[in-house]
């Protein structure tokens, strides 16, 4: 009898976690503070803004995210797209508190992190975040 309640509670909890995750996944949020240099990234900053994507070789949504960011980079002049392998840059991963891949950071021209998305972001949201970063 206890087992039945444990089973029902677990499924309910799983449903709540799943729905919350689905809604939050890829949402672009404000981020404050950290500033990244070209040396940190191992690549030049974009003239107006930089999209930094943390990936792992095995993460499925990372590929789709790469396509979205490459599209945006091609669409908006002065925007660089930098992809970082999280496993080989654990120093940055720890410093920025990255827990999942893909994580996308939007940097302004000076390299300050202004926006952050965990999970695969939508193209429109990235464009909106860029508009805010460039302004």
């Amino acid at each position: 009898m206890t087992g039945l309640w444990v089973a029902l509670a677990t499924l309910a909890l799983g449903t709540v976690i799943g729905v919350v995750r689905l809604r939050r996944d890829g949402r672009v949020n404000d981020a404050a503070g950290e500033r990244l240099s070209a040396a940190d990234l191992g690549s030049e900053l974009g003239e107006r803004a930089t999209l930094v994507q943390f990936s792992t070789a095995f993460c499925q949504p990372c590929r789709a995210t790469r396509r979205v960011l490459a599209d945006v980079g091609a669409l908006v002049p002065g925007v660089a797209h930098v992809e970082i392998d999280a496993e080989s840059r654990l120093d940055l991963v720890r410093r920025l508190g990255i827990t999942r891949t893909p994580t996308v950071l939007v940097l302004d021209a000076a390299g300050s992190v202004v926006k952050r998305a965990v999970g695969q972001p939508r193209k429109a949201d990235v464009l909106a975040a860029l508009a805010a970063a460039v302004a």
Binding site: A7, T10, G14, I17, G18, R21, T56, E87, T99, T101
Partner: peptide
């Protein structure tokens, strides 16, 4: 069960995320 259910129903792999 929670990990298996999240994977089956939502495609989230908790174990995979623990990997990083």
């Amino acid at each position: 069960l929670l990990a298996a259910f999240l994977n089956a129903a939502f495609g989230f792999c908790l174990g995979c995320e623990m990997y990083l």
